[in-house]
């Protein structure tokens, strides 16, 4: 039971970070449920039908999603704001529809036969991705991404290749979502396309919005709370979804910018030096 919680929370943290990474360059993606599905299915096919070891399969699935993410983001990034969000919703919907119509992976019936993932895989991944994001948050790249997110036109006029960075973020976000999806599929043992629909994507975005979008901790806290809160509310029986929904509404009213809304300046070292003697 506790293993299930660790697994579910870890996967959701990784998914929340996959949205956060894309958001770093200013795009809100509702496609990550789709990227996760690609990871789950590609890795499942690799392990079940070709006997590829799980970790290698997860990395390869991440690579496929990376290329897919860049491939769909390239035309999608011609749009902005709300339109881009709608395009990402469309991406999630088409991935699901695509998987439902491929008989090779079981179509609407789903796909099974995979196994071998443990919660510790996911815990290790959370540590690795978290460390990478922490490194990023102290780097100049973070500052450059912040500039793109603040005002991409001005960022470009300073010499920043905005499209390149946005594509890189989409690719990286898709990679993380797919690796998370790979381990999820090999833990849950059975996947169906409708698990990865638009609602899944909405939930992932919700983790980040509720947690806070300006630092890596927001997504982590948001995903953890949103994963464990429904479990803690089991006693509420049939009222659970209602109370859970109300909890979201209340959180958004009380903390409209998320639980941890702060942004950490990228000049941490410099700031310390500035302290008066």
């Amino acid at each position: 039971m506790i293993q299930d919680y660790v697994m579910q929370t870890g996967v959701n943290i990784l998914l929340a970070w996959s949205v956060y990474i894309i958001l770093l360059s200013g795009s809100l993606s509702f496609a990550n449920g789709g990227f996760m599905a690609i990871g789950a299915y590609v890795s499942a096919v690799l392990t079940v039908k070709f006997g590829v070891p799980l970790i290698l399969a997860a990395v390869l699935a991440g690579g496929v999603a990376f290329l897919f993410g860049i491939g769909v983001a390239f035309p999608a990034l011609r749009t902005r704001g709300l339109y881009l969000i709608l395009v990402t919703v469309g991406i999630a919907a088409s991935v699901r529809a695509m998987l439902e119509s491929i008989d090779y992976v079981g179509g609407i019936q789903g796909f099974s036969g995979m196994s071998g993932a443990s919660p510790w895989h996911v815990v290790a991944l959370v540590v690795i991705v978290g460390a990478a994001l922490w490194l990023l948050s102290r780097s100049r790249l973070q500052r450059i991404l912040d500039a793109v997110r603040e005002d991409e036109l001005v960022a470009a006029s300073m010499g920043i290749n905005v499209l390149y960075l946005k594509l890189a973020c989409f690719g990286a976000g898709a990679f993380i979502a797919a690796v998370a999806g790979s381990f999820y599929a090999h833990y849950i043992l059975f996947v169906r396309p409708d698990e990865f629909g638009i609602l899944a994507s909405v939930y992932i975005v919700l983790y980040v919005v509720l947690g806070g979008m300006n630092n890596l901790w927001g997504a982590l806290v948001g995903a953890t709370i949103m994963t464990l809160a429904p479990e803690l509310m089991r006693g509420l029986a049939q009222w659970r979804p209602t109370v859970f929904g109300l909890l979201i509404v209340v959180l958004l009213l009380v903390r409209p910018n998320g639980l941890l809304p702060f942004r950490i300046p990228t000049t941490g070292r410099a700031k310390r030096r500035a302290v008066k003697p």
């Binding site: 780097s139 450059i144 912040d146 300073m158 942004r263 300046p265």
Partner: peptide, 26 residues
């Protein structure tokens, strides 16, 4: 300006050495 960044960051972000190869800065 990049309103949610500090004054110093607004100036530092323009450093060309990292603008051209953003991933190197990692």
């Amino acid at each position: 300006l990049f309103g949610r960044m500090t004054v110093l960051e607004n100036v530092l972000v323009a450093d060309k050495r990292y603008l051209t190869r953003p991933f190197r800065s990692l």
